[in-house]
Nucleic acid binder design. Sequence first.
DNA 1: CTAAAATAGTTGACGCAGTCCATTATATCA
DNA 2: TGATATAATGGACTGCGTCAACTATTTTAG
Lengths: 304, 304
Amino acid sequence: MFSADQIADIQGFNKVYQNLLKQIDSAILKTGYTLTEKDVLLEISKTERCTANILIQQLSIDRSYMSRMIAKFEKHGLIEKTPSQTDNRIRYVRLTELGRKEINRLSDIQSNHIGSIFNKLSQEDQQIVWQSMVLIKNKLSDANDVITIRPFTQSDIEYVISRHKTLYYAERHLSGTFSAYVDEIVYRFVDNFNAQTDCLKILECNGVPAGSIAIAKVDFQTAQLRFFMLEPEMRQRGYGNRLMDMALDFCRQKGYKKVFLLTITAQVIARHVYETHGFYKTASYDKSEWGDGVIEERWELLLN
Amino acid sequence: MFSADQIADIQGFNKVYQNLLKQIDSAILKTGYTLTEKDVLLEISKTERCTANILIQQLSIDRSYMSRMIAKFEKHGLIEKTPSQTDNRIRYVRLTELGRKEINRLSDIQSNHIGSIFNKLSQEDQQIVWQSMVLIKNKLSDANDVITIRPFTQSDIEYVISRHKTLYYAERHLSGTFSAYVDEIVYRFVDNFNAQTDCLKILECNGVPAGSIAIAKVDFQTAQLRFFMLEPEMRQRGYGNRLMDMALDFCRQKGYKKVFLLTITAQVIARHVYETHGFYKTASYDKSEWGDGVIEERWELLLN
DNA sequence: CTAAAATAGTTGACGCAGTCCATTATATCA
DNA sequence: TGATATAATGGACTGCGTCAACTATTTTAG
């Protein structure tokens, strides 16, 4: 248990850090955007096929407020609204060139502010403080995040496609060819989904989707592992292994003898998960149509 | 310099911690008080001879807002206003029994919330996270706080009296007799102040007073060191030694041969500063009229 | 010693982020 | 085919916090 002195220390830390966050916030406010507006713009920039409703759920913002905010953004030329082809209630929201410029500007202000605070520290202290922050973040997240792994629902499909594309695109700079490929394989997978032979699990962190994994039947003995993905903030915390365990358990339960997966060389952290679960690389293919120097790899695992 | 990945880590930490602070805040908001109101109540409870203006300066809150807030507190029976005897513009603000109960309740909510977050961690992790927080707080404070030491002005007198009494009272549980004693010696010191023989310096942190030290002439060869005080959050960071250096430099410059000071046994951290500057204890007096078992000590230093 | 400037506090008016509720249009379910 | 759910919008409102004008008193300066 904590002593009163330790609680006081933590409150002291809270005060100091709250102050520091306020400084960053006020730098953002000087640009004329609300903090909420900044969050919304950022979320739009991170989300493919973004709708007002997705934003409302992800950021817990009032519907009418969001509606007005989006209207304002459109008026200022930061975003474009395009009606959905399949559902006339939905209007997709996408950043314009100007909008992207603005959110980059806001992000830069934030980064620069953090940089300027840390530059006042010695090189050595910078590393120490950084390491301490990462440590605190991981410990607190692990202890306080509510994590659930659940079967997918219809509304998760958009999430899987959108985030799969966005994360691969953002982190590995893959091309539009790859994007179309993801669309196709996800829809084909869902259309042919059979609960007896396939599975698609969603990892949720505090009620918000934060990762996915899927098993698709290829033939009686062979399954393909697909759509393995984790939000950046969930990585290196053991959730990748938990998803993988769950997927492989499903395979064993259903009597598959072999599991394979396709990935790209650049996915270093994922490779590690594959290796620790006994996968080994069996082939490499050139996939330069997805991006410069992209190499797809095939990994396999024989189940006992 | 920092890498982009490190900046991202820090932004991740900010996000997680901002979330955590929000949780604590929302627990406070559920009580019906604004966060600002909580801050104001807390500041009133910490400040003796508190006035609206002191609150305005310490918390950077608008005058009209403060006026209305104080009126509201008075209406709800949380505080009492008493006009000053010496300045008819001033109305002193003091917590009632109910007000003290409320601020204790709010503080408890905060502490309990912090406790509940940390209790989810293992004993070991609790210690690690706590240590990391203290480390970050100290490093960031040292690097970012703007510290100045400046001569006193008229408006500092209230500060010195108020904080001297509050800090001693809060930390050492001294009695009302001590309180009257401080009032008297401060006013006598200021009334007889002579810049040639005396000095009173104020330590400012980010534009807010955060400590003090004074030298008072006793005779041609002897000076008394008085009003040595540091806000809790400024301690153990070298500012006590800086104030002491400054005071002793003044003494040497003015040709004093001997400096003495009176303190109480319980002041452990201050003792350390005295010792490192070459003071030694020459006498102890019983001062139980100030509080249970209080012993006053006399320390001396011969200047070369 | 008196007029000007500074300080403590109060009151009026208002901006604006964020909320609540009702409404429209479309889609889905039973 | 009617009942229910969902996406988005518009009207009305709350309440934290700000700006500016004003009173009363004290301090300063010529």
